[in-house]
């Protein structure tokens, strides 16, 4: 089956500086020239030239960070998934992180419109001593009926392997029915879902005590839970009623981690 959009990039260390050595894109995917907010570390914005995802679309992204490389990957705007009458949209991403590298993935939210079906699978292989920050959020699009949640389903899988051993497997499946997604245990009356995963040697022992008060600030805007992964990494799950709340929380946590890595805070948003 043909691929609608492909993106491949490799970040390598040249002295103190990380450069994006190999970039390849094809079809509906494009990347802009890396931006250096910080002298040594590129931020890459990917974009979808078609304006949105439609039924049957397939996308694949490959990211490799060599030893010591540091890179942030984000998107230029939200990924919009329109109705998929014949086949769902499928998106996959493989990430490979060598020792001492630091990869932060902070995309805009995914907006799923009426009758959209969307599946994504992300596989991350990291060596011990690498740093990963992976974030994600899902949003119901506007529908003619005016009600949210008219998308058909979203399935999102994330597997994180460290030294070849599966350490975290997130499998989120959101399928609204008459009442389903608003109910207890599912979305609990919220409309937006966000996730964040951090694996880093710099996370330290007492990260839960630091993160607790940081997230408490959002108690009246979101329902948030966090816990420790098998490899002592951090997972955060967020339910809220607006994209900007989730974005703000993710950004806050990103900058909290960046401070630990001696990196300057980032402000990625473009609007």
């Amino acid at each position: 089956m043909s691929i609608t959009g492909t993106l491949r990039m490799k970040a390598v260390c040249r002295g103190d500086k990380t450069v994006v050595a190999d970039t390849y894109f094809d079809g509906a995917f494009k990347v802009a020239r890396p931006i250096y907010f910080e002298e040594s570390e590129p931020t890459v914005y990917s974009l979808h030239v078609g304006g949105g995802y439609v039924g049957g679309d397939r996308y694949h992204t490959d990211v490799v960070l060599e030893q010591g490389a540091k890179m942030t990957l984000t998107t230029q705007s939200a990924a919009k998934v329109y109705k998929t009458p014949n086949a769902p949209v499928f998106q996959s991403m493989n990430v490979s992180l060598a020792q001492g590298s630091a990869f932060m993935y902070v995309p805009d939210p995914l907006i799923a419109y009426e009758r959209a079906r969307f599946q994504q699978e992300t596989i991350i292989h990291m060596e011990k001593g690498a740093t990963l920050l992976y974030s994600d959020s899902m949003t119901p699009g506007w529908s003619e009926s005016g009600r949210p949640f008219r998308y058909e389903w979203i399935r999102s899988k994330l597997k994180i392997y460290e030294q070849g051993v599966l350490q975290a497997y997130d499998h989120l499946f959101l399928k609204p029915d008459e009442h389903g997604l608003f109910s207890l245990m599912q979305m609990e009356n919220y409309t937006h879902a966000g996730s964040l995963f951090i694996v880093s040697p710099q996370l330290g022992q007492n990260w839960q005590e630091e993160l607790g008060p940081l997230l408490e600030l959002y108690d009246n805007q979101a329902r948030i839970g966090f816990s420790e992964l098998k490899n002592s990494g951090c997972t955060i799950r967020i339910l809220a009623n607006a994209s900007h709340v989730i974005e703000e929380i993710i950004l806050k946590c990103t900058n909290w981690l960046r401070a630990k890595l001696d990196q300057k805070p980032v402000l990625l948003r473009k609007y």
Binding site: Y169, D170, H171, L172, F173, L174, S183, L184, M185, Q186, M187, E188, A193, Q208, G212, R223, I224, G225, F226, S227, R237, L239
Partner: peptide, 16 residues
Amino acid sequence: GMNMPGLEIAQMRHEQ
């Protein structure tokens, strides 16, 4: 292993 986000958050908060 399809997860329910609301339940997961409740389980995470239970730890604390």
